[in-house]
Simulated scan of single mutants.
Amino acid sequence: MLALNAQDIHMQQHAASKQEAIKAIAGELTQKGLVEAGYQDGMLAREAQTSTFLGSGIAIPHGTTDTRDQVKATGVQVFHFPNGVDWGEGNIAYVAIGIAAKSDEHLSILRQLTHVLSQDGVEAQLKTIRGAEEVVALLNGKATDPQALVFKPEMILTGFPATDMTTLQAVAAGLLKNHHCLDSHGVSALMASSPVHLGQGHWLLGAAEGVQKTGISLVMPACSLTHQSQPVSALWCMAANNALHLPVLETLMEWKISNQLSTCTNDSPDALIAALTQGSSLPSAPCEPATLSDAMAIDGESGLFTVTNAHGLHARPGAMLVNTAKKFSADIKVANASTQSPAVNAKSLMKVIALGVKHGHQLQFTASGTDAEEAIAALGAAIQDGLGEHA
Rank of each mutant, 00 (worst) to 15 (best):
M220W: 00
G215Q: 08
S229T: 14
L218S: 07
C223D: 13
W255T: 10
A208G: 02
S233V: 01
K213C: 02
T226S: 15
L252V: 01
G199C: 12
Q228P: 00
L176I: 06
A239L: 04
N242P: 00
A192E: 12
M253V: 03
L198E: 10
C181S: 08
V232A: 11
G210W: 06
M238I: 15
L205N: 11
S188V: 13
Q212K: 14
S229I: 05
A243Y: 10
S217K: 07
S229Y: 15
A189I: 00
A243L: 14
H202F: 11
N178V: 01
L249I: 02
V219F: 05
S188N: 07
H227R: 03
T214E: 10
C181W: 05
K177F: 12
L176V: 01
H179M: 04
E250Q: 14
M220N: 03
S193N: 12
S193I: 03
T226A: 12
G210D: 09
A192V: 00
G215S: 10
S233Y: 01
M220R: 13
L252Q: 05
C237K: 08
T214S: 13
T226K: 15
L182E: 06
L205D: 10
P195D: 09
L218G: 05
H180T: 07
L182C: 04
G199T: 11
S233P: 00
C223T: 14
E209N: 10
E209K: 11
D183V: 04
Q230S: 11
